[in-house]
Design a protein around this nucleic acid. Structure first.
Length: 806
DNA sequence: TTTTTGCGGGG
DNA sequence: GTGTACGCAAAAA
């Protein structure tokens, strides 16, 4: 008997039979491989044909003949109804699509024929990666880098202490003269590793030219071939559970594989000696049997990217935000020539290489708890969850729950259904447009998890839609959902919410990283549910469900608005799930009791939260309209902090002086409620700019080049500056941020834009900055108070601020 | 204007 | 591996 924690799974065909291979660790931290031979591939068919006739089907194909080994009759739930199906077992996994295609030639619909064999195994045996599994059986002498245990029985068991994973990060530097990459032509010149060995950092940089170093981690080898051999050895010796890289699916590992093939070097780092091979598809995923290859870039892009402030997923930007640590700065364009001249400067590149491996390691370590908890909840290996988008994570979770509820998994929509799904649109959240103005004593309410709670409380799902037993019609859509029998999807979502509530309770008693990560993973799944229903390629796509979720959302928010108004609160603004209202004569206690009153009327788990009280709030008008702008406001909370949404204060392509000024004007208005002071401040700043008293650093405007410099048709100021930088011999690749100042003179702006070091004795163009940076950043704010800052003569006509408080 | 292509990440 | 991203911006039609 053996208890182990699986983290990787694959299967192999031996003697015309599929064998499952589970790789994992035992509680005492040793690596093990557990095999299982008794799992048979299958799918479902809905057909009038007799099982006896079907069982005779034989389909020859390139590698043999596809055969059916057994057929069972089963019943499953499908969109609220019970359906009779044949469960068809085939000899090998690859026979499933072949037999399925044959059956579909004769009025037969097949289901679950595209569920991968290893996933099917995990779902059916209720085995969860990283959770303890008890195996009965014995060790064999199969050739492998870790002991192989052949199991006759596998049962998931009470989780003990999950062993910690050994992580090794890898990063390569390549010889790359000119532009573009060429893996076939140019060699790898350095490979860096970063790990942890007995709580000490494990550092190593391999390279094949000698240069003086002051560190002990650089190892010099004969040439690229020897370096690749050492790469293999180091991985075999370090014995990582997780091999991590940044874009290693698309760059580092394909590069290493391509170079190894050139030397006919067998890259057999897999625990079963399988030689690594390039993925030939568009979507590269490099799998190493027995070692989890985690490409951190994939997880960042698919899962946490949306919650990051940085729009760029470059290693430098992501590490800066998540770790507060950056890449080293070296001139990458010069690497090839430095390498050719064997310069001492190569030492700096070795340090750069190691730093990349280090921050990749740190990112992996930091994000691993989140990936592990997702893997445990969804029941898929780390390799898979780390590469999945939100919708696929939700879908995989729902798929694991089908076996609990005896539900049949719907097929993926075909191309034409998907096109139909995409073509249909429905109305989104309700927005109550604000009237521009400064408001005092504002209370903000919001619905806690509005869409998930609507789905649960109203039983929104395809199987409960327009049932035969109920008739509680949703006013706007004339649809209804069953009140008696809970649908499969709302049950699954309710379970997620309940599990998260339990974890929140545990966290009150004592929080830890695992509970936090688990709570985050469940929150992510719950919040993705509504989006999944309206996602065109979703198996459980349901236009009516998605449409009715937003319809009910609008209905509830409008009910709250109406109730607030009849209780003499005046509503200022509302967007989808939040309501902003002026207290007027009422107190915050009145606001809280209003929330209680509303909650007494809400069904199921729906709940309105009292989000907070704000002594002052400013709403400005939208461009070219007197109506208030959506999602653009500034508020002052009770602790004197500003909450700013939608203003330009954070945008890069505004000068520091304009951003600071906008922030200061908002502060004066919200904290001191003194429009005259704000106007005076603005005029004073304009005067300082006119007199060139503001340092030029504050005048820098930063714009990112999004394309190669040659490809720009219209030459903006940043392009003009970039062109001159190129002329001086420094390449300016796409993504470079160009800083420039607009100087005095005649002609178009682009002829007067200069990089800071080109500026010399030139002065910045005060009028340009006043008209294009200062005034646009404050005129919409001051306009609220009747101040036309663009027309100075109008400054005398300003109303007193008190006129704006009711 | 609509449709098609190509990029991101990596050196 | 019982499979074939995705969402957007720029270029082309």
């Amino acid at each position: 008997m053996l208890i182990f924690y699986p983290f990787d799974i694959t299967y192999k065909i031996k003697n015309d039979h599929a064998i499952i291979y589970l790789y994992g660790k035992t509680a005492d931290n040793s690596r093990v491989c557990v095999t299982y031979t008794k799992f048979q591939p299958y799918f479902y068919a809905q057909t009038d044909a007799s099982p006896i006739d079907i069982k005779k089907i034989r389909v020859p194909y390139a590698q043999g003949t596809a055969e059916i080994v057994d057929i069972q009759q089963v019943e499953k739930n499908f969109t609220g109804k019970s359906v009779r199906l044949l469960k068809i077992f085939t000899k090998l996994p690859q026979h499933v699509p072949i037999i399925k295609k044959e059956l579909e030639r004769s009025r037969t619909t097949c289901y679950e024929a595209d569920i991968l064999f290893t996933r099917r195994f995990l779902i059916d045996h209720r085995l969860t990666p990283l959770s303890a599994v008890q195996a009965t059986g014995s060790f064999t002498n199969e050739r492998s880098k870790v002991p192989v245990f052949e199991a006759t029985e596998l049962v998931s068991t009470e989780t003990q202490r999950q062993p910690e994973s050994r992580i090794l990060a890898v990063d390569i530097e390549t010889y790359n003269p000119g532009k573009g990459m060429n893996m076939e032509k140019y060699p790898i010149i350095m490979i860096a590793f970063y790990g942890l060995e007995n709580s000490q950092p494990f550092k190593k940089v391999l390279t094949w030219k000698k240069f003086p170093v002051t560190n002990d981690y650089t190892e010099f080898v004969q040439g690229e071939f020897e370096m690749l051999q050492r790469f293999k050895e180091i991985i075999d010796e370090y014995k990582p559970d997780i091999l991590t890289g940044y874009y290693s699916d698309g760059f580092d590992l394909p590069y290493i594989i391509t170079r190894a093939r050139k030397y006919q070097l067998q890259l057999d780092i897999s625990l079963d000696y399988t030689v690594l091979d390039n993925d030939k598809r568009d979507i590269k995923e490099i799998k190493i049997n027995g070692i989890v290859h985690l490409d951190i870039f994939q997880f960042v892009k698919h899962v946490i990217g949306r919650s990051l402030k940085t729009g760029s997923f470059k290693l430098d930007d992501v590490a800066a935000e998540i770790l507060g640590e950056r890449k080293h700065v070296v001139d990458m364009d010069a690497l090839a020539s430095v390498w050719d001249s064997q310069s001492d400067a190569l030492a700096a590149y070795a340090e750069y290489n190691l730093q990349d491996a280090k921050i990749t390691f740190d990112l992996c370590k930091k994000l691993l708890p989140n990936i592990e908890e997702l893997a445990k909840i969804i029941g898929l290996p780390l390799f898979d969850v780390s590469r999945m988008s939100f919708s696929r994570l939700v879908e995989s979770y729902i798929m694991t729950q089908t076996s609990v509820h005896n539900e049949l998994i719907p097929n993926k929509p075909d191309d034409s259904s998907m096109a139909n799904h995409r073509a249909k649109t429905y109305v989104g959240g309700f927005v109550y447009q604000p009237t521009p103005g400064l408001y005092e004593n504002v209370a903000v309410f919001d619905f806690r998890s509005l869409y998930p709670t609507i789905i649960i409380s109203h039983n929104i799902s395809p199987s409960s839609l327009r049932c035969g037993c109920c008739n509680d019609v949703i006013a706007e859509t004339k649809d209804w959902f069953c009140k008696k029998k809970k649908g499969f999807l709302p049950l699954v979502l309710e379970d997620i919410v309940t599990r998260r509530a339990r974890i929140k309770e545990l966290m009150k008693a004592g929080s830890n990283l695992m509970l936090e990560s688990r709570s985050n993973a469940l929150k992510l799944l719950a919040n993705s549910f509504y989006g999944y229903l309206g996602f065109a390629p979703a198996r459980w796509y349901s236009f009516e469900s998605a449409e009715n979720v937003t319809a009910l959302g609008r209905q509830y928010i409008q009910q709250v608005i109406a109730a607030a108004q009849s209780s003499n609160f005046s509503v200022i603004y509302s967007d989808t799930d939040s309501i902003f209202m002026r207290l007027g004569e009422k107190s915050t206690a009145d606001a809280r009791s209003f929330v209680e009153k509303i909650n007494a009327t809400l069904p199921g788990v729906m709940e309105l939260d009292y989000e907070g009280f704000y002594p002052a709030a400013l709403f400005v008008s939208a461009k070219a309209s007197s109506a208030g702008a959506k999602k653009k406001y500034a508020m002052l909370n009770e602790h004197g902090k500003l909450k700013i949404r939608g203003f330009e204060t954070v945008r890069r392509n505004w000068s520091v002086v304009a951003k600071q000024m906008q922030l200061r004007v908002l502060e004066i208005i919200l904290k001191e409620k003194d429009t005259k002071k704000a106007v005076a401040y603005t005029k004073e700043l304009i005067r300082s700019i006119r007199e060139h008293k503001i340092p030029v650093e504050q005048m820098l405007i930063s714009t990112q080049l999004t394309r190669p410099i040659e490809s720009y048709g219209s030459i903006g100021p940043h392009v003009a500056v970039a062109r001159r930088i190129v002329q001086r011999g420094t390449p300016v690749p796409p993504g470079t941020i160009i800083h420039f100042v607009v100087a005095e003179g005649s002609g178009v702006v682009r002829d007067r834009a200069f990089a800071p070091d080109e500026l010399g004795q030139r002065k910045y163009d005060a009028d340009y900055y006043i008209n294009n940076q200062i005034l646009p950043s404050v005129d919409r704010i001051l306009e609220v108070f009747g101040v036309d800052i663009k027309n100075e003569s109008a400054l005398h006509q300003q109303k007193s601020l008190s006129a704006f408080f009711g």
